Simulated scan of single mutants.
Amino acid sequence: MSDGPALAQYTMAAERAANEVIGAYSTSFGLATRLLGARHRQHVRNIYALVRVADELVDGVTDEAGLAIEQQRDALDRMIAETRRALELGCSGDLIIHAFARTARTSRIDESLIEPFFASMRTDLESRAATPTRLAAFDAQAHDDYVYGSAEVVGLMCLRVFQRDQRLDEATTGRLDEGARMLGAAFQNVNFLRDLRDDTVRLGRSYLGTAERLSDEDRETWVRTIRVQLDAAAETIPLLPKDARAAVRSAHALFSALNDRIAATTVDELYRTRIRVPDAVKARLVTRAVLTTWTEPRA
């Protein structure tokens, strides 16, 4: 059954709100989604908006608003409860959650992906509360658990959007799931290296190990790990629907370039500067990704 005019108008307003979140926080992501086929584009933006709002809640917004830790927990708990409710009902009074819930219900995104995401957001909040005067350090298991919830499941959510009109065999589905997880993990690990100063100084978190400060050897180890993750993800891009490949290839190429730049940067410099890819290089990477996609067969 199709939506009535009132619900359709409300959903359009919710999606415009989701787009505003993207415009405020990530122009690069907004541009990248334009490479997606029209049937995927808004759904991916709806996912990003919810993820970004939750991330901002635990990364300083509630703290800077003067909320005590119990009030910060309450803000996150209310967001989680409303998301669960919206998944059940298909509607929410919160525009960002409404947009996400419409996408989730359309794309078979369920609690198995949503709950790990919110668990990682809670980890961010609780790690700061538990160690207010020193770094909250993540050992290998804590890192892997956090990255699964904060990034790998987001990759899986986007994959569910791309696959919602497909029926794939178990082997192909498994390969695509692994590729989405590896791409999400690579993106997150690159961002950990890019955000060393902000994470350690402002947020008091050390996601990449238990030491107070990374060494150049640590950086080299993470660069190698990220390359393995990116290589694994690249193998599965040709299995995606053709109208999703250019966007995913572009993002993959951008983070590969970021990782290469990190490899050539000392840890001391990483603690001072956030590594970026120049706009001209981004343009070349995107053009190459689009041309590659145009010249390969449709899946």
Rank of each mutant, 00 (worst) to 15 (best):
G4T: 02
P5F: 00
L7N: 06
T11H: 03
T11M: 06
M12Q: 15
R16F: 10
N19T: 03
N19Y: 07
E20R: 14
I22A: 08
A24S: 04
A24P: 00
Y25K: 11
T27A: 14
S28Q: 07
G30F: 00
A32Q: 03
T33G: 04
R34F: 09
L35I: 04
A38L: 13
A38I: 14
R39V: 00
H40Q: 06
R41I: 02
H43Q: 09
V44N: 01
R45H: 00
N46M: 11
R52N: 03
V53Y: 04
A54W: 05
D59K: 05
V61P: 03
E64Q: 08
G66P: 04
Q72H: 00
A75F: 07
A75W: 06
A75K: 09
E82Y: 00
E82N: 04
R84D: 12
G90C: 15
C91V: 15
S92R: 05
I97E: 06
H98E: 12
R105F: 07
I109A: 02
E115I: 09
E115H: 12
A119W: 11
S120R: 13
D124K: 04
L125G: 15
R128T: 13
R128S: 12
A129S: 12
A130F: 09
P132Q: 09
P132A: 09
R134K: 13
D139F: 10
A142P: 09
D144W: 09
D145T: 14
Y146I: 09
Y146M: 11
V161Y: 03
Q163I: 08
D165R: 12
A171G: 07
L176Q: 06
L176F: 05
D177M: 06
L183H: 05
Q188V: 00
D198Y: 15
D199V: 05
R202N: 08
S206F: 09
S206W: 05
L208Q: 10
A211C: 02
E212V: 02
R213I: 03
E217V: 08
D218L: 10
L230W: 15
A234V: 11
A234Y: 14
A234Q: 13
P238T: 06
P238C: 02
P238F: 09
L239I: 06
L240D: 08
P241T: 02
A244V: 10
A247F: 08
V248W: 03
V248D: 04
H252K: 07
A253T: 08
N259W: 06
D260A: 10
A263N: 04
A264M: 15
D268A: 13
R274N: 11
R276M: 07
R276V: 11
P278N: 13
P278S: 08
A280W: 12
V281C: 02
V281P: 01
A283H: 05
R284N: 08
V286S: 04
A289H: 01
A289V: 02
L291F: 06
W294V: 08
T295N: 06
T295P: 00
P297D: 08
A299V: 13
